[in-house]
């Protein structure tokens, strides 16, 4: 018994104590994660309690699923869920844009044009969401540049930001403008890695460029595409709060109010902590289930999950 304990101790000493510094290296970030990411998980229980700040989390009475019920039966619940899903779906539809952009950059025959297009399309990623939304609303306002051009072409000015039917295209379009170059970088690298021998062989067999793209490039970068698509699907319900909140106004609220902006308004502006926590939790659970199932599917299909 003692011999066994001493073996364990020796093994512990050999594997753990020897590298005690490494544990020290991890400690700060471990504490950070524990406090700022696992800490809030403790607070999730207020979704099931009637939380009053004065009473604290622990002393607020349990109310069970009351707030979930309240949300699911409220008049705008389905509108919120629908808006969130539709906006996400639109964004998901834009998934091929960076791939096409990468192909275009990859096949541009002029070297300097190729290089400069890559670095310039990448640049908008570093413009903040606030500035981008500010510019978007200015450009598409009734006196903005877009309406000037419409007028020059003989059309009538439209106050885009105030019409619900233009809000989603503007939201998604501006996202494409901001992130396509950034997202294309990965595909450009993947395309550069495609074996030139395949292309030579195909050329000898008489394939033209389009055929080579379709039969060589696309299949070669398919693993990258699949992984990124999976990652993207896992984020369907976690669509950004910042941009939607910034582009909202009273006239487009019917399509622009999504779950995250609703949580912010209910919780921090109106002080309905328990209700908004319940709504947020509802959203997070759906999102988590999505990630898990998408990962399961991907493990089945491609043999490689995300974890």
């Amino acid at each position: 018994m003692q011999a066994r304990a001493s073996i364990l101790w020796r093994r512990f000493k050999k594997n753990v104590l020897r590298n005690w510094t490494l544990y020290l290296f991890v400690l700060p970030s471990f504490l950070y994660i524990t406090i700022f990411h696992y800490g809030p998980l403790y607070g999730i229980q207020i979704a099931f309690r009637n939380y009053k700040p004065a009473r604290g989390i622990w002393n607020s009475p349990w109310v069970g699923l009351k707030y979930f019920e309240k949300f699911l039966t409220s008049y705008n619940c389905w509108e919120l869920i629908r808006n969130t899903l539709i906006l996400s779906f639109y964004e998901l539809m834009m998934f091929p844009v960076p791939i096409v952009l990468a192909l275009i950059i990859h096949y541009t025959p002029i070297r300097w044009l190729r290089k400069s297009t890559q670095s310039i399309t990448y640049a908008p990623y570093f413009i903040s969401v606030v500035v981008m939304c500010g510019m978007l609303t200015t450009f598409f306002s009734s006196t903005g540049i877009v309406n000037q051009i419409i007028k020059i072409l003989g059309g009538n000015a439209i106050d885009f930001m105030n019409y619900e039917e233009y809000w989603r295209p503007l939201y998604v379009g501006s996202g494409v403008w901001r992130t396509s170059g950034y997202n294309a970088v990965i595909y450009i690298a993947a395309l550069a890695g495609v074996s030139p021998e395949l292309h030579e062989a195909a050329t000898v067999d008489g394939a033209n460029r389009l055929q080579r793209i379709w039969h060589i490039d696309i299949p070669s970068i398919l693993p990258t595409i699949v992984i990124l698509l999976i990652l993207r699907c896992g984020r369907i319900m976690s669509i950004g709060f910042q941009k939607a909140y910034l582009l909202q106004n009273d006239l487009n609220l019917g399509v622009s109010e999504i779950i995250s902006t609703y949580v912010y308004k209910m919780g921090l502006q109106k002080g309905q902590y328990s209700l908004s926590t319940a709504v947020g939790l509802f959203n997070n659970i759906i999102n988590f289930l999505l990630v898990i199932s998408v990962n399961k599917i991907s493990s089945k299909l491609t043999g490689s999950g995300l974890w």
Binding site: I33, G39, P40, S260, L268, Y273, N284, V291, W307
Partner: peptide
């Protein structure tokens, strides 16, 4: 690593973080 990566996929949300 699992302990860290979990937080990428599940978070307490805006309000619990604010209360913390």
């Amino acid at each position: 690593l699992k302990y860290y990566v979990f937080t990428m996929y599940f978070s307490g949300g805006m309000i619990p973080t604010y209360i913390l």
